[in-house]
């Protein structure tokens, strides 16, 4: 029988516990951090891990935290950092001035060449993704 979308599953599975999920995410991040940009491996690893997480997030296999039915008025504060980022990203992208007026991606690229920073970024990306799946 099909389950309703808002169903919150109470019984935690073994692999859903932090003691299991965190080491798995760390291992996936360490592997991902070894692959340089533009490599086939990096593309496959990104598409593979993201694809599995999306698959988990679109079915009811992972317990979800209850979502709010409405947002409080203070939610408007989130537009402030978003607008500042979009303004600078848009301006740097349209200007296309290279390193003279770089986009966020262009600034991040040299940092992501370091394997440790790259693995840490992988961990942040996967952890946030896992958090979204559980929402």
């Amino acid at each position: 029988m099909e389950q309703p979308h808002d169903l919150t599953v109470e019984a935690p599975r073994a692999w859903d516990r932090p003691a299991v999920a965190v080491p798995v995410l760390v291992c996936l991040s360490l592997v991902g951090g070894r692959f340089p940009s533009f490599s086939v491996e990096a593309n496959l690893w990104t598409l593979g891990t993201g694809g599995v997480l999306i698959w988990l997030g679109l079915n009811n296999r992972v317990p979800r935290r209850p979502a709010p039915h409405r947002l409080e008025s203070g939610a408007v504060w989130w537009t402030l950092p978003v607008v500042v980022f979009v303004v600078f990203e848009g301006a740097t992208f349209v200007a296309a001035a290279g390193d003279g007026f770089p986009t966020f991606s262009r600034l991040a690229d040299p940092l992501l060449e370091d394997r440790l920073v790259r693995s840490a970024t992988w961990l942040a990306w996967l952890s946030a993704f896992w958090g979204l799946v559980r929402r």
Partner: peptide, 22 residues
């Protein structure tokens, strides 16, 4: 169709690919 979930997941997937694969 869970448009919101698909949209948020898709955006986050693209963001990771953008920074970590290209």
């Amino acid at each position: 169709v869970p448009v919101g979930r698909i949209g948020v997941f898709g955006f986050w997937w693209w963001l990771g690919w953008h920074f970590l694969a290209r």
